[in-house]
Nucleic acid binder design. Structure first.
Length: 456
RNA sequence: UCCUCAGUAGCUCAACGGUAGAGCAUUCGGCUGUUAACCGAAGGGUUGUAGGUUCGAAUCCUACCUGAGGAGCCA
């Protein structure tokens, strides 16, 4: 029997005898609330096991999975044959009664009374991602299909929760979302790491690598603001924690200092972790993430100065010297004795951006802060207090060989009612990788953009 | 940009100088409780590309292509 005739034979399913009302269409995730009821699921075939006159199709609908039980003697011949012949990821709907069943994953099962084929995946080109193992290259080439797999599905759901929690936290703590542009006219700190875009031929613009400068203007207008969007870095970086396109949330606060940044960053992290643990127990299980690693993430986080961090690293055998930035190995060393993120502040001015406010007591230090996640997940937050004095800003622009004309609007912020202000940026993908215990950030974003990968 | 590693069936891998194999996927057959089901059978290959060494190359050498991991840099 060909797939065509199967399809045509099942387009008008025979309803069970009697005057039964049509079954209610529900998401699989709601199944536990409909035990004993006749319902319909709409989805795709995840896997099928068959044993002669009984078949067990597992349907997934995006909200969950459900094992169905189709018994030959209880079904019209064509419906049973259709189910028996389903191939992986064929789309179909199935009607039946939900029953608690300890033998099934998830604890429930559907006794099938009817089913309808939407499209059968043909045997000439079967679904490429099988239930067995695959390599990274193959999976990345099939990212658009890989998202249907259990682990990827779980990781993207955690990503959703991280983003939602960030917004919930900031929204309920007085922050206003004020978006910053993605096309920007000039580099924030040099052009080497920026993607250049041809803007109607006559002007060069770049894809943003940070909304921070605009955030500072927005903070002077709204007090507490944040921007949340994609960020682009053209560095030819090729490691498990890099993407060329990633999402970053950047809160910025007027009348705030370095201490306030540390407090907000810590509270934000604690809030998100709590929500992930509370809402995504099942997803973490699918990801084989040990939740006890996250249960410790509570305030206060250990705090240390850059000075102390360098001393600690040297005592642990790092080659680092005062004045240098931490490498990945250093970040791992620094956090290995702690079960929660480490906050490091007051970095040497020369390794930080031009806009950092210097320490009053020690002007060679910038009031910058990084939050470094445990378990070798690295820097998840970077921020600090910004320069609010015009004369000092001008001095820094000169030292960094930045054209003053391009920063006129930014200088205005220091002319018209300047106030101390501070903020930070947090990378969503690194945060999600940490929550999920993933090896690589590429699985934390639906369509990762990397050095040698821009498709699909 | 640099260093290291890898490209063999649709997928994951084996064969390491002498006739290219297995599991999964697909098709056919069997099985009324399967859990990456199982059992039997079938089809499926220009061994990344181009040269070279050799009687003989998937295997050794050179270059290139593609990808992965790491360094630097970053969230």
């Amino acid at each position: 029997m060909s797939s065509d005739s199967l399809a045509s034979e099942t387009t008008a399913p025979t309803l069970p005898a009697g005057n039964e009302a049509p079954a209610k269409i529900i998401p699989i995730s709601d199944a536990h609330r409909h035990v004993g009821e006749r319902v319909e699921f709409q989805g795709w075939l995840y896997n099928l096991r068959k044993s002669g006159k009984i078949v067990f199709p597992i349907i997934r609908d995006g909200s969950g999975m459900m094992q169905c039980v189709a018994v030959k003697s209880n079904l019209p011949e064509d419906v049973f044959e259709m189910l028996k012949g389903l191939t992986q990821e064929s789309s179909f709907t199935v009607t039946g009664t939900i029953r608690a069943e300890s033998r099934a994953h998830g604890g429930y099962e559907l006794d099938v009374t009817d089913a309808k084929l939407i499209q059968r995946v043909s045997e000439e080109s079967p679904y490429p991602i099988t239930p067995k193992e695959h390599g990274v290259d193959f999976l990345m080439d099939h990212r658009h299909l890989w998202l249907r797999s259990r682990r990827q599905h779980a990781a993207i759901r955690v990503r959703h929760q991280v983003i939602k929690s960030i917004r919930d936290y900031l929204d309920s703590n007085g922050f206003t979302l004020v978006d910053t542009p993605i096309f920007t006219p000039a580099a924030c700190e040099g052009t080497t790491t920026l993607f250049e875009v041809d803007y109607f031929g006559d002007e060069k613009v770049y894809l943003t690598q940070s909304g921070q400068l605009y955030n500072e203007a927005n903070a002077m207008a709204f007090g507490k603001v944040y921007c949340f969007g994609p960020t682009f870095r053209a560095e030819k970086s090729k490691t498990r924690r890099h993407l060329t396109e990633f999402w970053m949330v950047e809160p910025e606060m007027a009348y705030a200092d370095l201490e306030e940044v540390k407090r907000v960053a810590e509270a934000l992290v604690v809030y998100i972790v709590g929500r992930v643990l509370e809402q995504h127990e099942e997803d973490l299980k699918v990801l084989e993430r040990d939740p006890s690693k996250l249960e410790n993430i509570k305030a206060p986080f250990p705090r240390m100065s850059y000075d102390d961090a360098v001393k600690i690293l040297q005592s642990k055998g790092s080659e680092i010297r005062w004045g240098g930035d931490f490498g990945n190995a250093d970040e791992t060393l620094l956090t290995q004795d702690f079960d929660r993120p480490v906050i490091v502040d007051r970095y040497p001015t020369q390794i930080k951006g031009f806009y950092f406010q210097p320490d009053e007591q020690r002007p060679e230090l910038a009031l910058g802060v990084d939050v470094i996640a445990p378990e070798a997940y690295g820097e998840i937050i970077g921020g600090g207090q910004r320069i609010h004095d015009l004369a000092l800003l001008d001095k820094r622009l000169q030292e960094h060989h930045l054209p003053r004309e391009a920063f006129e609007w930014y200088r205005d912020l220091r002319r018209f009612g300047t106030v101390p202000h501070a903020g930070f940026g947090m990378g969503v993908e690194r945060f999600v990788a940490w929550m999920c215990g993933l090896e690589h950030v590429r699985e934390t974003i639906p369509y990762p953009r990397m050095l040698y990968r821009t498709r699909p």
